[in-house]
Design a protein around this nucleic acid. Structure first.
Lengths: 220, 220
DNA sequence: ACCTGAACACCGTTCAAGT
DNA sequence: ACCTGAACACCGTTCAAGT
């Protein structure tokens, strides 16, 4: 048995598995996370992982909860409600920017705790802001859905673009493609192509939040 | 060769393949669409499909374009801009309601023509509405991202829920789960649990559109 | 030019067997 | 209780061979 693969000495745990999964996902994207790769990194057999984790869905959900949980834990500041909502939104945005696979996961298991946490933080602040009872559910839903939309868009971009690509190079490429569209069919898209090249995703995201907040303010 | 499988007599085409793929996706969801199932339904070999379609991604993108293209073709009415935007949004919503897999696809290939078509229609109407130049790109982006968020959410729900499940049963189940959350941790979500059970997805979607439009109106 | 279908290189997941 | 790793039942995709 001299050529046996080195196995780990300490015990496995769900936390260890999730941490390793996050590392693999961050480094190589969703495609890189396989039970074989995970087992190799953890120096164990692939079957061992199933003792701690129900299946791949469970693993992805746990990894997502871990990332979003960290964001939410950091956002408990007692700031003014409007600022708190912006901070929560930005926190989610930045987390998905750093871990694009989270964006793809957030809408797969929509009622897992990650989702609920975002919903709760935002809903609570809207309440504190004095949004009338009748509009509260719709307002929270609009904000959460908007955040989700941006999240999935970002996740899609990250998946489309090779990891090494420069962001502004990428935007320039897309902008150039937009600018070449048929003027009769796509006048608007052609027109904003130039703005696309120079725009800042993060700022545009916040602008959308502000737009929705402005709409919510008209409810009173 | 008497026991040979019956093969099709007429020629294959990308349109035929896409149409068959849409049928499979509608009937059995994303998991049901395999090249083997598609080949069987088309009475051909799995390799034949690759003559007309680059790969599975290409197939899903073409199917998505087909569905969204139909919506957009139907929405060229010369209505008042604000009504036109609501109509486009509702058209996309209903299309995704009928074909939930489209929601999951829309954010995977974000710059395919489906996306561009939505962007163009909405952006053009915002322009017609007199939204100032500086806010136009952000406004269109907010609306499209919101629509995408709802789309992916709906797709996720459809994937989570077995095809036969009654919608109100499902909502009641989720509402019951929400109502049982820790009151100290989730006061807001617990509170809206009752509204969740009775709310109409489609109406709430439109309420969000109206909220964003109200925010956009404050720009002038 | 277009189609066939076996073969290849993967997956997630299971499970008898070990410690 | 926890771990091993071969085995199973799938996938998407390729490709030599046919028409």
């Amino acid at each position: 048995m001299a050529d046996r693969i080195q196995r780990r000495a300490d015990a496995l745990s769900k936390e260890l598995i999730v941490a390793a999964a996050i590392e693999i996902l961050d480094a190589g994207g969703e495609r890189a996370l396989t039970f074989r790769a995970l087992a190799a990194r953890l120096a164990t057999g692939s079957g061992a992982i199933y003792w701690h984790v129900a299946d791949k869905n469970d693993l992805l959900a746990a990894a997502t909860d871990e990332v979003i949980g960290r964001v939410m834990a950091g956002a408990i500041s007692g700031a003014e409600p409007r600022e708190a909502i912006r901070a929560i939104a930005l926190g989610v945005f930045d987390a998905i920017d750093a871990h694009p696979w989270v964006g793809a996961q957030l809408h797969r298991e929509p009622w897992r705790s990650a989702m609920l946490q975002i919903c709760e933080s935002i809903g609570g602040r809207l309440q504190a802001l004095g949004v009338p009872e009748r509009g509260l559910f719709d307002a929270a839903s609009a904000l959460v859905n908007y955040i989700l939309g941006v999240a999935s868009q970002n996740a899609a971009n990250a998946r489309l673009v090779p990891l090494e690509t420069d962001r502004s190079d990428f935007l320039a490429t897309v902008a150039a493609r937009w600018a070449q569209l048929d003027p009769a069919e796509y006048p608007f898209v052609r027109q904003v192509a130039a703005q696309l090249r120079e725009h800042d995703d993060r700022e545009q995201f916040l602008a959308g939040i502000d737009l929705i907040m402005a709409g919510i303010a008209t409810l009173r």
